[in-house]
């Protein structure tokens, strides 16, 4: 009981000293009256606090205070908050998209050698907030192009015999098939890597290897 009384007296004394101090700070204008009203309310609250505590209404007081203040704050900022939350959602989608692109880019880098330079990644996401599948990846298109090689000028070559031409033709065809095989191997590797890393079906991943 003594502790309780001591705390009560300290509370009253401190708040009175505090208000006296603040009274010197507050601007000397018509505002002073309004500030005094609030300060008066404060003093009433501090003085009647023991009764509140005896009746165990302290929680009720705090609850009512918080309830009313949140009601007032919500009323003023309801429109602002929807706008802000929409903006935040958009930003989140953008960040998600960029991170996803970076990740796909890393997978492509790991799967290909340094010959491939230009990598373009096109992502299609479900951006409709209302939709059930919001944030789901619809498709991924990866286009990688080979670094352009320098053209070496060579002297004109004369092919005399028909046989030689036939041999050359075969060789060229063989190379082409090999080249296509290589491309399809790279694209399937990339597709597999992306599918495993992101946990999505391979059917929505398109990979194109350009010369």
């Amino acid at each position: 009981m003594a502790d309780f009384l001591r705390e009560w007296v300290i509370n009253i004394a401190v708040i009175i000293i505090f208000i006296m101090f603040l009274d010197t700070i507050i601007p000397n204008s018509s505002m002073k009256r309004y500030i005094n009203v609030i300060v008066g309310l404060m003093i009433i609250v501090v003085v009647i606090k023991p009764f509140v505590l005896i009746k165990d209404y302290a929680d009720s007081f705090n609850m009512k205070f918080l309830e009313t203040s949140s009601y007032i704050e919500q009323g003023g900022s309801a429109a602002d908050s929807t706008e802000i939350s929409n903006f935040q959602r958009q930003m989140a989608v953008e960040i998600f998209e960029n991170n996803l692109k970076k990740k796909v880019g890393r997978i492509v880098d790991n799967s290909t050698d340094s010959d491939y330079e230009e990598v373009s990644i096109d992502l299609r996401l479900e951006k409709d907030f209302e939709s059930k599948d919001f944030g789901e990846i619809k498709s991924i298109e990866v286009i990688i192009s080979k670094r352009p090689k320098e053209v070496i000028e060579v002297d004109r070559i004369k092919i005399a015999a028909d046989e030689d031409a036939e041999v050359n033709k075969n060789v060229i065809n063989k190379d082409k098939v090999e080249y296509n095989l290589n491309n399809s191997r790279i694209s399937s590797e990339i597709r597999d890597g992306i599918s495993k890393a992101l946990g999505i079906s391979e059917s929505i991943i398109g990979v194109e290897v350009r010369q």
Partner: peptide, 10 residues
Amino acid sequence: IPILAALMDI
């Protein structure tokens, strides 16, 4: 207002 409301409630 919140202080006033809480006070009135008490």
